[in-house]
């Protein structure tokens, strides 16, 4: 019996290993393919002042990570954009709840939502530059980009919550918190996760654009702007690479954390991995039995 289980486990591990090795190889191939394309483009253009090679950018990146100012700029940008994102998230959630609770509120604020969505981000940045300090401009722009996405998606999610389940909860006298935890949160979580993922990418890009135009001290946007002014193309490429990497890492981190939070709150696992779903569910409920 033990041997059988051991063999089963070994075959499962080897399958997982093979799958993961396959994925890594595929990723490596795609990565190398685009590096080669980049290198070919560099060779064709053949002007260092306009276009940098992968090796030059990698070299500059290695140099940058040993400079304190680079880290300060990265942390500064992360803090400003993060603050704007959190403010936008909080406001979006609040406005969504108010919109669902009160039709008048929803009707009153709908034009504002449409207006924010239709206005080019550069118009907002220029206006904000007149109104406030450069640090606040970045926070404000990210807030403006994030809030409407969260707001609209959450309203959609709350409205699409299964009425039959809510009626069931009413009949079985589930209190408000229980209804939120067991029905609303699992129902809206796909909408929230999608909204966070979209708004994070958009907010990050808009935040960097705002930094480029408002040039606050210790920011990736200012570094990007200065690279352009002094024609330091390698720096421009290196900072762009940092911005892309940070955006990808942040999105993955936050979306994964949200999936995990969703599992913990409702023992839900439909959107997360099969195994963790069962594990969480069994652990939390067996304890009670």
């Amino acid at each position: 019996m033990w041997d059988k289980n051991k063999k089963k486990l070994q075959s499962r591990f080897s399958k997982i290993f093979q799958e993961s090795a396959g994925r890594s190889l595929r990723f490596l191939f795609i990565f190398l393919f685009w590096i080669v394309v980049w290198q070919i483009a560099y060779l064709i253009i053949d002007r260092d002042i306009v276009f940098s090679s992968p090796a030059q950018v990698a070299g500059r990146l290695i140099e940058l990570i040993s400079i304190d100012e680079f880290w300060a700029s990265t942390v500064g940008s992360l803090a400003r954009i993060g603050l704007g994102f959190l403010a936008g998230l909080a406001a979006g959630v609040l406005l969504a709840i108010l919109s669902v609770a009160n039709r008048w509120f929803a009707a009153l604020f709908k034009p504002l939502l449409s207006m924010i969505r239709a206005t080019p981000v550069s118009s907002f940045i220029i206006l904000a530059l007149i109104w406030m300090s450069s640090v606040r401009v970045v926070i404000f722009i990210v807030f403006l980009m994030v809030m409407p996405i969260i707001w609209a998606n959450l309203v959609e999610g709350i409205r699409k919550t299964d009425r039959q389940l809510l009626e069931m909860a009413r009949l079985f006298k589930m209190n408000r918190w229980r209804r939120i935890r067991l029905i609303y949160l699992p129902s809206i979580s796909p909408f929230l996760i999608s909204a966070v993922s979209t708004s994070l990418g958009l907010g990050w890009k808009a935040g960097i654009a705002a930094e480029v135009l408002s040039t606050p001290d210790l920011s990736l946007g200012k570094s990007l702007y200065e690279s352009k002014i002094y024609l330091e193309t390698q720096d421009l490429f290196a900072y762009t690479a940092v911005i892309i990497i940070l955006s990808m890492v942040l999105e993955k981190l936050i979306v994964k954390s949200l999936y995990m939070l969703q599992n913990l709150i409702s023992h839900q696992g439909r959107l997360y991995r099969h195994n963790s779903r069962h594990l969480l569910s069994r652990l939390s409920l067996r304890k009670r039995l």
């Binding site: 039959q164 009949l171 409702s266 839900q268």
Partner: peptide, 28 residues
Amino acid sequence: RISMVFQEDRLLPWMNLMGNLFAVQPEA
């Protein structure tokens, strides 16, 4: 206290059976 079996099952799709039952009754 009124209890009901609806025409539709109306089970919470994101919870296992145990979770669905614990949602209405705390006594294991």
